[in-house]
Design a protein around this nucleic acid. Structure first.
Lengths: 153, 153
DNA sequence: TATATACCCATTGACGCCCATATATTCCCA
DNA sequence: TGGGAATATATGGGCGTCAATGGGTATATA
């Protein structure tokens, strides 16, 4: 499986380490399994993460913008300076930078939610609450959801 | 990782030395890890820096501007004539020239912001303020930011 | 000679690597 | 097919290494 799916709840130890769920580790390319990138989610108080390969794609896209435009700086600043890399140790653990933990209000436990091509890290209670409201929103538009689910390609 | 990413806040000591963040040093080519170039940013009160190899890329981008426009001369002059080189010592530190420090209003601490193929050095508070306004501008065009971050190839 | 800069050494704290354990899962063989 | 062994995962902790920082001294340059 090459997608981040399912959810996991792991503890953060005294040193600040937390295990990246094993199934998530397996999504990372064999060529670079010991590094991930993390950044603040735009839409929610959570951290988003994925393999570094994605970053290179992003870099390429930004590089194609007009170098002397204001947009270039905005993208470049908001993305490159806000993204951090984190190394995964031999046991599959990594460190979440302090400011990101604060942003997501994460203290002693982290909830990992698969999102397909990336994943989110939440404070457990907040994350669970979010899945509920998220699902509720979907059910309120059940009709369109059914359309998507049953639609044939 | 071969990109300047994330942000770091380092102190400037009595001798004027400041550590180039370790991860930034690793971006510099192994062949020339003890020299960087610095110049005043055109768009903000900050210093931009990169490895000397990047000079060619800068030249190319300026060359792509309309040769007979006013911009051409202005950019060309403001950038090339202002570029300085700085040596990195054995401990990974370098000196920021006095006029550049003044331009960016840097006193005792420097904030390094990754920008992909180059980096910026800011007075910490000013730099943080800039990331906020920059992000705000982008959120006003949320769609385009999401495109860059989540778009699949 | 005075000032600036490079090299050397030292300190501190953070992080990576190694080893250990407990629990869960898979595998294998009788 | 049941049970035990091997394996994998999450978690805890010791310790060495490296990054950031401070300062002394030599060297160079004006």
């Amino acid at each position: 499986m090459d997608l981040f799916i399912s959810k996991f709840f792991n503890k953060i130890d005294k040193k600040g380490r937390v295990s990246l769920p094993s199934s998530f580790r397996n999504v990372l390319p064999k060529s670079n399994r010991n590094e991930i990138i993390l950044y603040k989610s735009i839409k929610s108080p959570s951290i988003e993460g994925c393999g570094v390969g994605r970053l290179k794609e992003i870099a390429k896209r930004i590089n194609n913008l007009d170098f002397f435009s204001e947009d270039y700086d905005d993208f470049s600043t908001s993305i490159f300076s806000e993204i951090v890399t984190s190394n995964i140790d031999k046991e599959g653990r990594f460190l979440i930078p302090e400011d990101l933990k604060q942003y997501a209000n994460i203290k002693t436990e982290a909830a990992f939610f698969g999102q397909g091509h990336f994943f989110q890290i939440w404070e457990p209670k907040t994350g669970l609450k979010n899945t509920l409201t998220s699902r509720k929103r979907l059910l309120e538009q059940k009709k369109s959801l059914r359309m998507i689910l049953t639609q044939q390609k």
